[in-house]
């Protein structure tokens, strides 16, 4: 008797649980639609002719996709050229950010000197400084040094502004690992730099992943510095192509949509391939922070 009651209970519980689960899935789906539907709309409208945009339908499945928009995006939008620049700037910046932040964190955390904490805090201060407050001065400085309109005009500030966060993550991680291994390596007469690259780097791998991902996302998508410091197309990065193109084809929206879709494409692909690492890396960094 008692058993059947609890059985009934558990059956009802199971059904309830199932319904609950479906509700959960439904809710998540609604949210997902909210998150990515504008993107789908964007891609949809990028395949239309300029005059097909108007009308009551908010999704128009094009019978003849207007690929011309994408041709314009590739040629006049200069997406490939900007993509190359983006890759160069991002790879160099992120590499420098990783190397410099590892070196600095090691210098602050493991080396013994009086002002190490003071300097660490000065670097961490950079966290709070808004990029935009430095746009005016840096523009003039770069012009004086004649490095405005070169890759350096982007790489230098990108590295500088990502260092505080990277150093924060690295040094935070370093705090959690004991330095016994390093001690013994040093005892054996290993130099600091060899130690850094053979022993410390592998240990820091999770932190490095986090730094690479956050820095890469920051650098790859950065716009206002790229728009302010650079003058010629030669060094411009991907986010600028959208901006530039919207001037060239200011009244051809579907072509603009094509450029937007196209310039979002590389990071989307990278994300789809690496999404596990990316979400893990971001989460690790954030929870640490």
């Amino acid at each position: 008797m008692a058993e059947t009651v609890s059985n009934k209970h558990s059956i009802r519980g199971k059904i309830k649980k199932k319904i609950f689960r479906y509700i959960q899935i439904l809710l998540c789906s609604v949210l997902t639609v909210g998150c990515i539907f504008p993107l789908i709309w964007l891609i949809n409208f990028s395949l239309l002719k300029a005059n097909e945009l108007f009308g009551p339908k908010f999704l128009v499945w094009p019978k003849n996709p207007h690929w011309e928009n994408y041709r314009l995006a590739l040629t006049d939008g200069k997406v490939p050229q900007y993509l190359v620049n983006s890759v160069i700037v991002a790879v160099v910046s992120v590499s420098l950010i990783v190397i410099l932040s590892v070196m600095m964190s090691y210098g602050f955390k493991r080396m013994r000197w009086r002002l190490s904490n003071v300097f660490l805090n000065i670097v961490l201060l950079g966290f709070m400084i808004p990029i935009h407050a430095t746009l005016l001065s840096n523009f003039i400085t770069f012009a004086d040094l004649k490095i405005q309109d070169s890759y350096f005009a982007l790489i230098i500030p990108y590295v500088a502004f990502n260092l505080p966060q990277a150093t924060f993550i690295m040094s935070g991680f370093m705090d959690t690992i004991p330095d016994a291994v390093e001690e013994s390596a040093l005892m054996d007469g290993c130099s600091i730099f060899r130690l850094l690259f053979t022993i410390v780097l592998p240990i820091l791998k999770p932190a490095i992943m986090t730094v690479i991902i956050t820095a890469f996302l920051n650098v790859w998508n950065e716009f206002i510095m790229a728009a302010t410091y650079l003058t010629s197309d030669r060094y411009r990065t991907l986010p600028f192509s959208v901006y530039n193109f919207s001037g060239m084809y200011s009244s051809n929206y579907s072509a603009q949509f094509a450029v937007m879709a196209l310039s979002a494409f590389p990071s989307l692909i990278a994300y789809v391939i690496l999404n596990k690492h990316i979400t893990k890396g971001i989460a690790a960094g954030a929870v640490k922070g």
């Binding site: 790879v91 070169s150 350096f152 780097l201």
Partner: peptide
């Protein structure tokens, strides 16, 4: 050790890119 090699490749890549960037700059000059 694997990571060390990776790191090395990384460094070489940067060096290459930096010199590329430098060349690009020179060429533009």
């Amino acid at each position: 050790m694997k990571l060390f090699r990776k790191g090395l490749v990384f460094l070489v890549a940067i060096a290459l890119l930096l010199s590329m960037a430098a060349c690009g700059k020179k060429a533009s000059k």
